[in-house]
């Protein structure tokens, strides 16, 4: 990708910054690390309020769901280069291994196909090694929802 071809993003999705204006993403301190042409790399730091079992201190599966859902959505926006509202149609998550306490969780999602109405996305959640995922997902998003209203960037 050339440096003049920076993909457009919503104002709340700036690479290198925590997501703002999305309350639940803020609650998880979700940060966008990289945005490409149809790809998004996001991260949430380990936090005590995200734990699913205080004994093992493993992060709750729902947190991984939120992270992947949000990263998939950013990947879609970066691919369509449109700011129309999108909505998750379905999301499948396979849990490969429990997350390790105290480590940040990253999500890398790729929007690999867009049609007029829908976008297809796949992604993984991992700590540091993409070849050793915590979870994998596939998702389908509806494009231009909310009465096809365009959301101003």
């Amino acid at each position: 990708m050339s440096d003049t071809d920076t993909p457009p993003t919503l104002p709340q999705h700036r690479a290198g910054f925590a997501i703002t204006g999305v309350p639940h993403a803020e609650g998880l301190a979700m940060t966008v690390l990289e945005i490409g042409d149809g790809t998004a790399l996001t991260m949430i730091p380990y936090a005590d309020h995200l734990v699913g079992d205080p004994e093992t201190r493993i992060i709750h599966g729902g947190v991984v769901t939120s992270l992947l859902d949000n990263a998939c959505g950013i990947a879609v926006t970066s691919k369509t280069k449109r700011f129309g509202a999108i909505a998750t149609l379905d999301l499948r998550i396979d849990y490969m291994k429990p997350a390790t306490p105290d480590l940040a969780i990253h999500a890398f999602c790729e929007c690999y196909r867009v049609t007029r109405s829908v976008a297809f996305v796949r992604g993984i959640a991992f700590h540091t090694d993409r070849a050793d995922p915590i979870a994998a997902c596939v998702a389908v998003f509806m494009l231009n929802t909310a009465g096809r209203r365009e959301v101003k960037p």
Binding site: V22, H24, G61, G62, S66
Partner: peptide, 8 residues
């Protein structure tokens, strides 16, 4: 609601 919230 956040899709992740509904999922969780």
């Amino acid at each position: 609601l956040h899709g992740g919230v509904v999922g969780g």
